[in-house]
Design a protein around this nucleic acid. Sequence first.
DNA 1: AGTTTAAGTTGTCAAAAAGGAATTTATTAT
DNA 2: ATAATAAATTCCTTTTTGACAACTTAAACT
Lengths: 121, 121
Amino acid sequence: MELAQNLKVLREKKGLLQKEVANAVGVHPSNYSKMEKGERDVSIEVANKIASFFGITIDELVHMNGKIPKEVTIVDKSANERLQLILQLEEQDRNAIFRIIDGMLTKSKFKDFFNKNADTL
Amino acid sequence: MELAQNLKVLREKKGLLQKEVANAVGVHPSNYSKMEKGERDVSIEVANKIASFFGITIDELVHMNGKIPKEVTIVDKSANERLQLILQLEEQDRNAIFRIIDGMLTKSKFKDFFNKNADTL
DNA sequence: AGTTTAAGTTGTCAAAAAGGAATTTATTAT
DNA sequence: ATAATAAATTCCTTTTTGACAACTTAAACT
């Protein structure tokens, strides 16, 4: 439970001030400071706000041991919700989706490759 | 934040007593009762213990709105990996996927509805 | 150096929330 | 209906919180 440290790592990686994060999630800056110092517990509500503020999950926030998960850029919020829904689809549909996605990924990978090597070809 | 309800749904789905869950995660039964009733906050530490006790993530525990993430955790291991990949697709592709998924979901919902009401129609 | 300004930390304390024992209210079984 | 078990509630004590001012650091400027 190294949440405190994670808060600091995340915030600094984003180049934000304590005050900014604190205000964004609705806690008093002085108390946010204590949270980063491990001197105040973080409620689930606040953890939830912080996680979505940073575009990660609560679990990532709680369990990443000082390591930033994936791109901490803004990940499509609505995407995540919809991803949950995919899992509810019946198998046939789910597989169809996956085939399409795989196709797109291949295309995308190829494009990347092509762009990076265009000059050498 | 319907955590309280989720606790109850999960526990009952597993056929466990409050006391059992309470003991498993180290909270006093009277307080666990309050947590299920929404009269006590759940700390992150405890949420974490409960989530791993039920084999789900904190986010699922917090966000599943009364719906068990049933086999979701086990169902499709490769699904989750692929889901991450969707986020890497370029916007156009991602949106296409979402349109398709939405379509499938609609179809699926309709099917459900039809099955449930077939006799009354 | 000394001054100003911004960022973060610390101490305080009333108010709020938590923990736990005992009690009461279901619920279930005999 | 009674007993037994589970859950909910009450009550009281202890702990934690939230908000704010005061304080320390750090950086920036003259």
